[in-house]
Lab assay of single mutants.
Amino acid sequence: FYCSMCNVGAGEEMEFRQHLESKQHK
C-alpha cells in the first residue's frame, strides 16, 4: 500500500487505513 500524495508506504492495509485517517494525510 502506498500513498503517493504523502510519499508514505504501509506494509499492511490496516496501517494504510490508519494513515488515511490520520492528520498526517494530506
Rank of each mutant, 00 (worst) to 15 (best):
A10V: 10
Q24P: 12
F1H: 05
E12R: 08
F16T: 05
Q18N: 11
S4R: 13
E15H: 14
Q18G: 08
E15L: 06
V8S: 15
E13F: 02
N7W: 04
S22L: 05
K26C: 13
Q18F: 02
Q18D: 13
N7V: 13
A10W: 15
N7H: 13
E13Q: 04
E13R: 10
M14E: 04
Q18I: 09
R17C: 11
L20E: 15
E12C: 06
E15A: 07
A10D: 08
C6D: 01
K26D: 09
M14C: 00
M5K: 14
E12H: 00
E13W: 03
M5L: 12
E15N: 05
V8M: 14
E13K: 10
C3H: 14
Y2N: 15
A10Q: 05
G11T: 12
M14H: 12
Q18Y: 06
E15G: 06
K23W: 05
E15S: 07
K26T: 14
M5N: 08
R17K: 14
Y2E: 01
N7P: 04
Y2T: 12
F16G: 06
F1W: 10
E13Y: 02
E13V: 02
M14W: 05
K26N: 07
N7T: 10
Q18W: 00
L20D: 03
F1S: 06
Q24K: 14
H25G: 04
K26I: 12
F16Q: 13
Q24L: 06
R17T: 13
G11L: 09
Y2P: 00
K26V: 13
N7G: 15
F1N: 10
H25P: 01
L20A: 07
R17Q: 15
G11D: 14
E13G: 10
N7S: 13
H19W: 00
Q24D: 15
C6E: 08
E12V: 08
H19K: 07
Y2W: 07
Q18S: 09
H25V: 04
G9A: 12
C3M: 00
K23M: 15
H25F: 04
N7E: 15
C3L: 01
C3I: 00
K26L: 14
S4W: 01
V8F: 15
E21L: 07
H25K: 01
A10E: 10
V8C: 15
Q24A: 13
M5I: 10
M14S: 10
E12F: 06
K26A: 13
E15T: 04
H25E: 04
K26M: 12
F16I: 10
M14F: 07
F16P: 08
N7I: 01
C6Y: 00
R17M: 09
H25M: 00
E21C: 05
L20G: 06
K26W: 08
M5G: 06
C6P: 00
H25A: 05
L20V: 10
E15I: 06
M5V: 14
M14L: 11
Q24W: 12
R17S: 13
N7L: 11
C6G: 03
G11S: 13
H19C: 02
M5P: 14
R17W: 04
G11Y: 09
G11I: 03
S4K: 14
K23Q: 15
F1K: 07
C3P: 00
E13D: 10
Y2M: 03
V8L: 14
L20Y: 05
C6S: 02
F16C: 02
E21P: 01
G11N: 04
E13C: 01
K26P: 12
F16H: 10
S22V: 01
K23V: 14
G9L: 09
E12M: 07
Y2R: 01
G11R: 09
G11C: 04
S22H: 02
V8P: 12
S22N: 08
Q18H: 12
E21R: 02
Q24R: 06
C3S: 02
A10I: 10
Q24Y: 11
S4E: 09
G11M: 06
G9N: 15
E21F: 03
G11K: 14
A10P: 07
H19A: 02
E21Q: 08
F16A: 10
G11Q: 08
A10H: 13
K23C: 09
S22D: 11
V8T: 14
Y2I: 07
C3T: 00
E12P: 10
K26Y: 10
R17N: 12
F16V: 05
M5Q: 12
S4G: 05
M14D: 09
E21V: 04
Q24H: 07
G11V: 07
N7R: 13
G9D: 15
K23S: 13
L20K: 10
S4Q: 03
H25S: 02
Q24V: 08
F1R: 03
K23L: 12
E21W: 00
S4T: 15
M5R: 09
K26Q: 09
S4I: 01
S4D: 15
Y2S: 03
E13T: 06
S4C: 01
S22R: 03
Q24T: 04
C6M: 02
V8N: 04
E15R: 03
L20M: 06
A10C: 11
R17G: 09
Y2L: 06
M5T: 12
C3R: 01
G9F: 10
F16S: 11
M5Y: 11
E12T: 14
H19S: 04
Q24G: 13
V8G: 06
S4Y: 04
Y2H: 11
Q18C: 02
F1G: 04
F1C: 02
M5C: 03
Q24E: 06
S4A: 08
E15W: 01
A10Y: 15
V8R: 13
F1I: 05
N7Y: 07
M5S: 04
E12D: 11
